[in-house]
Write a protein that binds this DNA or RNA. Structure first.
Lengths: 214, 214
DNA sequence: ACACCATACCGTACATGTACGGAAAGAATT
DNA sequence: AATTCTTTCCGTACATGTACGGTATGGTGT
């Protein structure tokens, strides 16, 4: 079908939106995270403050757009760190994930530490999972481990459990920077090893099932 | 020493502070979490809005005071759920901790999911650890397990790792309520079992040390 | 050509957290 | 008793997020 008026308009709207995201990005770079305010952002692109709301539902939405960019960078960085050994490749995911979280605490927080009361704009959780490129890599590398016989069970369940461990570790490190975790990277590695050690010795059933014992 | 003027004043100040906390508590009960505003709170106790700041550094400080109350309740609830078997007693901590987090997401968030840039009022992390009664119980039950030979290694390190796992699990459940974790309690149990299984098979060195293997 | 309407943008207004300086009152010191 | 200091409380002011309604502009249907 030819580019209708409708689609041209949508394209223009998308362009303006990404222009706003870019401006927001610069603002954060220049003035830090809390230097990003709706009014400043609007002034930057020559709009009235309220006009920003034509492109973003609320401020959270802007932060989320920024964070999504960051997570694409993360995914790329993860894919640069791979290995022939599927377990090592999996460990690399955790390591890079942790390095990213510790290096970009604000982005990490907006994506993983603010409640998702509503999924953003009618997406299912699957879209969300596919939407987060980092999570996508995690799952695929878990699948590789399962395929290689290094892990056994349901890949999604394994990935979710790894996610929980990784997230717990990173978010504690971010939230309690003064707590004596020792070297952050070492702590991450320990947690990661701990989890993989057990996961590799047992079959992991899918998540919907309730475990048998007790 | 006799109660000086100084101490009487401090006592009165503390009373007024807890009066404010109580009022805040009622406000939250009546109007929900975001119904708690400085202005409403001040009006409730007959002060001008700014006077609240004589008793609390900022709004976060109020939320924290509320959350501390909640965590004392949690600690009491945990101590009601014990067991002769130290491992079971430890599992009970995790179970109650999870139930609490899922049942009081707001309190959980303010305590464990908002950055602690500064420790509140010159406390060390140890005070903070001692200050959180739930964490205190966790550590003591870990120590019991170590004493009974069910776990081996540094109790603080073990407790911290358990904390990381528990926190990761709970905060994901809170943050992504729509993600298909399956039954929350079952997921928590799985994570807990997973961790304890491995921890029980290996010696856990203190946190300050870096693990030997690469 | 005309009326209609969706869309994009804006102006105003409000509730909120909180910085700042001031006032009042009581304690401490002289 | 007079003065100075400290503590408590407040009034004002500002930046912020955002709700609401208005307006203009350009495309659509008659």
């Amino acid at each position: 079908m030819p580019p209708s008026v409708q689609t041209r308009r949508e394209k223009q709207k998308a362009e303006l939106r990404s222009e706003l995201v870019e401006a927001a990005h610069k603002l954060v770079q220049e003035e830090g995270y809390e230097g990003l305010t709706i009014r400043k952002l609007a002034k930057r692109v020559g709009y009235a403050p309220m006009s920003v709301y034509s492109y973003f539902a609320d401020k959270q939405d802007i932060l989320f757009a920024l964070a999504e960019d960051a997570f694409e960078t993360l995914a790329r960085r993860i894919e640069e760190h791979s290995s022939d050994d599927p377990i090592e490749a999996l460990q690399a995911v955790m390591t890079e994930y942790a390095a990213f979280g510790l290096g970009n605490p604000n982005e990490y927080r907006t994506v993983f530490m603010t409640e998702k009361t509503r999924l953003p704009e009618g997406r299912s959780y699957e879209d969300m999972e596919e939407g987060n490129p980092a999570m996508k890599v995690l799952i695929s590398r878990v699948e590789a481990c399962v395929a290689a016989g290094k892990l056994q069970g349901d890949p999604r369940a394994i990935a979710t459990m790894l996610w929980a461990v990784g997230h717990g570790t990173i978010s504690l490190l971010i939230t309690f920077p003064f707590y004596p975790f020792g070297d952050p990277q070492a702590f991450v590695k320990r947690m990661c090893d701990l989890t993989l050690a057990t996961l590799s010795t047992q079959n992991v059933p899918p998540l919907t099932e309730t475990p048998v014992n007790c």
